[in-house]
Design a protein around this nucleic acid. Structure first.
Lengths: 135, 135
DNA sequence: GTAGATGCAAAGTATTTGCGACAAG
DNA sequence: CTTGTCGCAAATACTTTGCATCTAC
C-alpha cells in the first residue's frame, strides 16, 4: 500500500482540516471516478455540514498538489480519482459508462517520440478510448 | 480540396440557412480551433444579427452530423474544428497554447489492440499531448 | 404550406468567490 | 496570534431552452 492522501498532504505542506480529512478518506475508498456531486453526496453521509463549496475548493487544491487527477470525459462533468505512482489511461464503455483503466508502455513511448519529432518535450498527455463491448 | 461544409450539409440532409452558411464559411476559413465565443465574434463581423444561441445550436448540429469536431482541452472552453477525412490528434504547447496536429498510425493501431484486449471494439478515441518547446 | 430555424431573454448547469466567523499551526 | 479555511449565498461562466416569428424547401 502506498502513501495515504493524508500523508501526501503532510509531505506537500497542505494543511489538514476535518473537512479535508473526510474528503481524502472518501476519495481513498472510491474505486470509481466520482464527479463533485457524487463526492459531495458521499462526504455528506459522513459529515453533513460540509458544504459543496468546500468540496470544490478541496478537489481543486488536491489536483494542484498532484494528489488527485481530474478527468473531463466526453460531454460529462469533471470526475476525480486518486493519483498514484502507476500512471494509467482510460477505456470508457460508451453504452454503460463503465471505466476501465489500462497501461500500455508501447503507446507511452510512442507519444514521447511524437512530441520529440515536433520539437517538444512531453509534459503530460491524455488518452481516452471509447468503445463498445464485443459479444 | 475536399467537400465544403455546405456540400456536406446537403449530402447529410442538413437544411441550409443564411446563418448556417456564414458559420460554415467562418469555420472553413479558420485554421485554428476557435471556441464558441471566438466563432461568434468572427461570425458577427459578417452578419451582426446572428445570435450566439444560433452559433451554439449550429456547432452542436454540425458536430452531431459529423461536420465539426469538438475538443475540450484541459481546463479550457470547448473548441471546434472542421472534420475532414484525415483523422488527427493534437499536441498542445502548454506555454503558448499553440496546437499542432499530428497523425501516428502506429499509435492508432495500438489503441485498437488495447481495446480488443479488454474485449471492446474501439469506436472513438481522444489523444492529447501536452508539451513544452525544446530549446 | 409546414416543419424546422431564429432571436431574445430567461433558465439551467457547473463552478467560483466575497465575506464574516472560525480553526490549524 | 495570524494566516488560511469554512459555510453561505450571491456571482460567474458556459450552454440550453420556451416562445413567438420567420424561412427553406
Amino acid at each position: 500500500m502506498s502513501e495515504t492522501i493524508e500523508q501526501k498532504c503532510l509531505s506537500k505542506g497542505v494543511k489538514l482540516t476535518d473537512q479535508r480529512r473526510v474528503i481524502a478518506q472518501v476519495m481513498s475508498e472510491s474505486t470509481d471516478h466520482p464527479d463533485v456531486d457524487e463526492l459531495y453526496n458521499r462526504v455528506s453521509k459522513i459529515d453533513s455540514k460540509i458544504s459543496i463549496a468546500t468540496v470544490y475548493r478541496t478537489v481543486k487544491l488536491f489536483e494542484e498538489s498532484g494528489i488527485l487527477a481530474k478527468h473531463e470525459f466526453k460531454g460529462s462533468k469533471a470526475r476525480y480519482e486518486e493519483l498514484n505512482e502507476g500512471h494509467h489511461d482510460h477505456l470508457i464503455d460508451i453504452k454503460t459508462g463503465e471505466i476501465i483503466e489500462f497501461v500500455d508502455e508501447e503507446i507511452e513511448s510512442l507519444q514521447k517520440k511524437v512530441a520529440e519529432k515536433h520539437g517538444y518535450t512531453l509534459v503530460d498527455h491524455k488518452l481516452e478510448l471509447y468503445g463498445v463491448k464485443k459479444k
